[in-house]
Design a protein around this nucleic acid. Sequence first.
DNA 1: ATGTAAAACTAACGATTGTTAGTTAATATT
DNA 2: AATATTAACTAACAATCGTTAGTTTTACAT
Lengths: 192, 192
Amino acid sequence: MKPTTLTRKQEICITAARLFKQKGYSAVTMRDLAAEVGVKAASLYNHITSKEEILNEVILNIAESFTQGIQDIRLEDTKVAQKLEAVIAQHVHLTADNPYGMASLNNDWMHLGEGKEKYLSLRSTYEQHFREIIKEGKAQNVLKDIDEEVILFSTLGTLRNLYLWIPKKADLQRSKLIDSLCETLLNGVKTA
Amino acid sequence: MKPTTLTRKQEICITAARLFKQKGYSAVTMRDLAAEVGVKAASLYNHITSKEEILNEVILNIAESFTQGIQDIRLEDTKVAQKLEAVIAQHVHLTADNPYGMASLNNDWMHLGEGKEKYLSLRSTYEQHFREIIKEGKAQNVLKDIDEEVILFSTLGTLRNLYLWIPKKADLQRSKLIDSLCETLLNGVKTA
DNA sequence: ATGTAAAACTAACGATTGTTAGTTAATATT
DNA sequence: AATATTAACTAACAATCGTTAGTTTTACAT
C-alpha cells in the first residue's frame, strides 16, 4: 500500500466514477473505461475482478464515510443547531471531495449486486441518525413542529443534489457555501 | 385520438417510464418492456419507431409542462411570495401525477438523442424564470440577501427529489405536503 | 546481465442488445 | 361476406456486451 501515489485500481475506480456520472453505470462499457484509462479492456481485469466490483468500491466507500460521519456528529456533545450545521458541512465536504462518487451513489446504487444490502443498510442507518437529530431538535423546541419526514427529505433532497452544481461553482468557497446553505436550509430564504 | 382510453403507444411509454425509474434507461431492454406490456419485443415497433423515441416522449412532455407552468406563474399578477408558493405547488402536482416521468427526466435526460437540445433549452428556460422570480423577491426585500444560485439550487434540489418519496407518502395529502414544503423551504425549519 | 512478477497485449467466447423482415391473426370498413 | 388495415407473431441480423485464455512486454530485484 502506497498512500502517497495512486494504485492502478484506484485510478480505474476514479475514472469509472467520472464516466458513471456522465452516462450512468449501465451505459459505460468496459471498453469505454479502458480507453479513458489508456489501456485495453482486458487489461482492466489484472486489477479488478468485475465491473460490479468497481461500482461497489465507488459507492460503498463514500456511503460508509457518510454514515460514520453522521454517527460521530450525533454523539457530539453540542447543541442541536450545531449538529445540523455539521451534517450540512459534512455533505459539502464529502461531495466536493468526490462529486463523481456522489453521483454514482445517488443514481446507480440499484445496480449493486452483492453490496446492495450493505448500501441500503448504510443509507437506512444514515437516515435514522438524521431523524434522531431532528427529533431532538423538535423536543428542545429548536425546530418547528413540521412533519419529521418533510424536514428530513427536504434537507436531504438539497444535500443529495450538491454534486450537480458544486463542480460548476468552484469559485464559491466551501466555507461560504456552507454558511449560505445553513442559513437557507435552517432559517429559510424569506425575510423575517 | 381517443382521450378517454389509452393509446397503445401511451401505455408503452407509461410502462417504460416505470421501468426507467427502477433500473435506468440503459438497463431496460426492449424485451423487458415488451414482457411488461404483455407482448413480444418486435411488436412494440408497430407503435414506436425506436427506444429513444420513448424516452423523448416521456421526458419532453413533462419538461414542457414545467416550463410552461413556471412561465405562467411568473406572469401572474401576484406577490412574489405567492409565486414561490405556486412554483412549489406545481412541482408537487406534476410530480405526484407522474413520478416515473420525473425520475426519467432527472436521471436519463443525457440519453436523449435528437431531443436533448430541446430538453436542455427547456430546463435552461425554467431555471431562468425561477431566477427572475428570486431576483424580484430580493429586490422587494421579500427574500434575504443570499446568493441567488444557492437559493435556486437549494430549493430546486429538494423539489427535484420529490419523486423519490412522494410515492411512499401517499397518505400525506397534497395540500398538507405543499403547506409543509412552503414553510420548510421559505421560512426554514428552525424556530424564530 | 538475468530471472521473476506485474501488467500490458491479441483474440475470441457466448450472451444479449436494438432492430428488421416476413408472416399470421385480429379488427374494422365497405 | 369480402376486403383492407392494424397489430400481433417467429426468426434472425449485425453489433456490442462483460469476460476469459493465452501470450508478450515492461519493470524491478538479484
